[in-house]
């Protein structure tokens, strides 16, 4: 756990005069859970979008697993193991839960120029999909269309899809958004065992979640990282208190 898996340097993105990322620099240790917090509009989601490749930065470099991926398109970064979830759940609504995850398995397996064999009956797609669904407590919902799942279940399904690609690193944009306290706790129960196996960059509003899970935290204010460090340091930091935590 010494060499960073993700290094962001000088990342800059302006929308007009508003800085979403202002020469943003931070690194994420391999295998860690790294919290990314900050007040509304600090540029957390924009940072995720730039890391995933969906948003092109004005300047700055991104190194992932030792390679400069700054110029890579979304699918290439994802295929290299940098996967993301969305703040607003993003699924294939007409597909069943199992089909959603099977498609993620398919993405991992390489090209999909295979035209004749019925995908739903291919064991090497369906079995790993069911295994991941089982791990996330969705086994009973395998054949239910994604659109008919509850909100919490949908968020778990998205995480199941992302995990089915066997990622090196997850960019999780508020995985507990809109969840009940029970669901939120279950999500933490899913994320905690990943520590050490999958690196996670966790954007989260719920401070209980972040401080309970994170090994390190970066605090973002107006597109700048004002501190990166262990939770205790961040909690004690005067600037953080003033800028953000206030009444925490």
């Amino acid at each position: 756990m010494t060499e960073p898996i993700l290094e962001v340097s000088g990342l800059t993105k302006f929308f007009g005069a508003v800085a979403a990322s202002d020469v943003l620099t931070f690194a994420v240790e391999r295998g860690s859970i790294h919290g990314l917090i900050g007040p509304n509009g600090a540029g957390k989601s924009t940072t995720i979008a730039q890391l995933s490749g969906e948003l092109r930065p004005d300047a700055g470099r991104i190194r992932f697993a030792g390679t400069d991926i700054s110029a890579w398109p979304v699918h290439r970064r994802a295929h290299a193991g940098l996967q993301r979830s969305y703040q607003i759940t993003s699924l294939f609504p007409d597909f069943t839960a199992a089909e959603n995850v099977a498609l993620a398995v398919q993405a991992r397996q390489g090209h999909s120029f295979r035209f004749l064999a019925p995908a739903r009956e291919i064991p090497s797609l369906r079995e790993p999909a069911l295994a991941v669904l089982g791990r996330l407590g969705l086994a009973a919902k395998a054949d239910v269309p994604a659109s008919r799942l509850g909100h919490g279940e949908q968020r778990q399904l998205e995480l199941a899809m992302v995990l089915a690609t066997r990622p090196k690193m997850l960019l999780l944009d508020e995985p507990t958004a809109g969840m009940s306290r029970t669901e939120s706790r279950r999500m933490m129960g899913i994320l905690r065992p990943l520590k050490g196996k999958v690196t996670i960059l966790l954007v989260e509003h719920d401070m209980d979640v972040v401080f309970a899970l994170a090994d390190a935290i970066t605090v973002l204010v107006k597109g700048k990282a004002i501190i990166t460090g262990p939770p205790a340091d961040v909690r004690a930091n005067e600037n953080v208190r003033r800028a953000y935590l206030g009444n925490y």
Partner: peptide, 11 residues
């Protein structure tokens, strides 16, 4: 259904 999701999965 969701092309952005497919890309984000690596396709």
């Amino acid at each position: 259904q969701n092309e952005a999701r497919l890309a984000a999965l690596g396709i």
